[in-house]
Amino acid sequence: MSQTIAPAAIRKSFTVRATPERAFEVFTAGLHRWWPKSHSIGDAPLKMATIEPRVGGRWYSLTEDGVEHEWGDVLAWEPPARLILAWRLNGAFTYDPDLLTEVEVCFAATGEGETRVDFEHRGLERFGAGEAVQAIRGGMDQGWGLILDAFQTVADA
């Protein structure tokens, strides 16, 4: 019973009908054109999202109320093959400079005008502190049924 249970990284792989160059460009410079409006950071709709094109560059967004929101920063910038971002948004979608989870995206040409995209969001065990704990504590008030349901959902997933 000495094992510790950490959540598995989120992994997604898919193919797009575009070159790696185009895919990398849309993922980074075009982020605001595809990021779901339903998952904007802050109180207002997303207007612009920026990933500064260099290691150490900022990753932030601007909402229509003129407020800037930090998301994280660039850990690896290797266009068009690979990108690693530090995702520093906690479970409440709030920036936490002490939180480090990593988003890695790899783009590889698989044929004429086709690119395989391998996506990974890892380090999720680091969500286990601070405000994330507060959120869970709030959920506890709703009783054991809810929590055991959550276990079941995770186990069945």
Partner: peptide, 23 residues
């Protein structure tokens, strides 16, 4: 909160939606 897996499940769904839109 790792034991509950709630944050992971939520993020997994966020990325599903986001990456579909990206593609």
């Amino acid at each position: 909160p790792r034991g509950l897996g709630q944050i992971r499940a939520w993020l997994d769904q966020v990325w599903d939606v986001a990456l579909d839109a990206f593609r």
